[in-house]
Design a protein around this nucleic acid. Structure first.
Lengths: 249, 249
DNA sequence: CGACTAGGTGGACGCTGTCCACATTGATAC
DNA sequence: GTATCAATGTGGACAGCGTCCACCTAGTCG
């Protein structure tokens, strides 16, 4: 929540005693706390900082809270500085959305990795499928604004920016596909039903998350939410695994 | 680019052509065309007009395009006049969202009513279930911005405002429940699976609509969209109508 | 060493939501 | 019939926003 580079908390100085008056040089008594000098940060620092600041704003207030001027304020630069790194506010927002999506993917990957059992083990496969769905919903519930932001990419900007950064092979969809493949491998899912089945599953989980966090169900009491969630997840599992020879159990 | 704000400059106020102008011109130094009259429209006209204007803006640009000042401009009043009818912009937006949801419900009802066959007929029941889902998706596809608006109710404002206006007892959820009940009546859905099953179904259809219209699938080619849609709807139908094995689970 | 450029700065514009004080109306109380 | 009053419209103002323009500076490279 705290930015390491927030040295610019100076209170808005509307009619300020701006010390920028005199020319540079002269080794003047530059106030240490207000380094308003130009072009001194390491390369890419401002851009990274703006995205981080935008992410912080999005976490607190959703996509609409990603305000360009506020982000620059957090970073400690003047609003126009942002235009050296982003064409406009939408491009900044798109980068923030990508970062939010990345965080969703990271959390899902962590949840999946936390399920014990090697690949090939049926119980583990089932557990990982559950983990994928649960992590998705958990993210939506614990970080609702960030979840909304991940899916608030402005029009004209593509989803899943070919990120070279954190492994883009860990997008939510990729992870879902992986776990579905594993279900087939261990025999819990009929291979003939595999093709394209990620979309019904994704739609269901995503729809539930959206209805609960942003939709008509958002005001429902916690108990109802749990009931509905169980019903929906149970429906998916039942539908997916239907017609499979009961292995023990 | 704000410069392309464009459009909506037409002075066509949706409110009646009630010429309030001439009756009491104070004579002199007024621009003749100036709509300077005060408090003369029929009761509720401005409020209704603002909602209609907001709906029109939402249809074209989504919830963010519901700009208070623009709505007042369309109606032909000064911005502050809106504050006599709505506490703030969010309250106007909430009313517009309710109207958008109403339109969704109306279209669904029309689609359901268009399916021939009396209640009790299995084919008709199945057709109506399909109509509910298809109408939902059709609305999302033909009016994407309005669909987004229907689900963009500001926090603090409740969904499904108890509208006495257009028969809004036919909310999307109510219609879905109704058609599911009919499926049970005609024997297409196991009564034991009926309880709460509207939520998985709703989640799936809603999730699909959101993913396609606002989410990562929005840039997909039309053919893929159709493929995914068929897959998802098929999945629901199959899962719903499948004879349930006597597993209590 | 001088020129170029990436990246910072300040100022300004039009737009927005919202607050204030004021004006006019139609209805109602006397 | 007139005075009062709540409802409703008006005009002006403010801060905050995104964005454009002109300028300046630090570091790099020929």
């Amino acid at each position: 929540m705290d930015t390491e580079r927030s040295a610019a908390e100076n209170p808005s100085s509307t009619a300020g005693s701006r010390s920028d008056n005199g020319s540079r040089s002269t080794g003047g008594p530059r106030p240490a706390a207000g380094p308003r000098s130009t072009a001194r940060r390491p390369r890419g620092a401002v851009r990274e900082g703006l995205i981080a600041a935008g992410l912080q704003l999005a976490r607190a207030g959703g996509p609409d809270a990603v305000v360009l001027r506020e982000a620059t304020r957090i970073v400690g630069v003047v609003p126009n500085a942002a235009y050296r790194h982003f064409a406009d506010r939408d491009e900044l927002l798109a980068a923030v959305c990508a970062a939010a999506m990345d965080e969703l993917g990271t959390r899902m990957a962590a949840a999946v990795a936390a399920v014990p059992g090697e690949r090939g083990d049926a119980d583990a496969a089932f557990g990982r499928m559950a983990a994928v769905g649960t992590a998705y919903l958990d993210f939506a519930r614990t970080e609702p604004k960030l979840f909304a932001t991940a899916f608030a990419v402005p029009e004209q900007h593509p989803y899943f920016i070919p990120a070279n950064a954190t492994g883009s092979d860990r997008t939510p969809l990729a992870q879902l596909r992986d776990v579905l493949d594993e279900l087939v491998e261990v025999g819990l899912l009929d291979p003939r039903r595999r093709e394209g089945v990620e979309f019904p599953v994704w739609s269901t989980v995503h729809g539930l998350a959206v209805l609960i966090e942003q939709g008509p169900l958002r005001a429902a009491p916690e108990e109802d939410i749990r009931l509905v969630t169980d019903k929906v997840l149970g429906f998916i599992a039942e539908s997916l695994l239907a017609g499979v020879p009961e292995s023990g159990a």
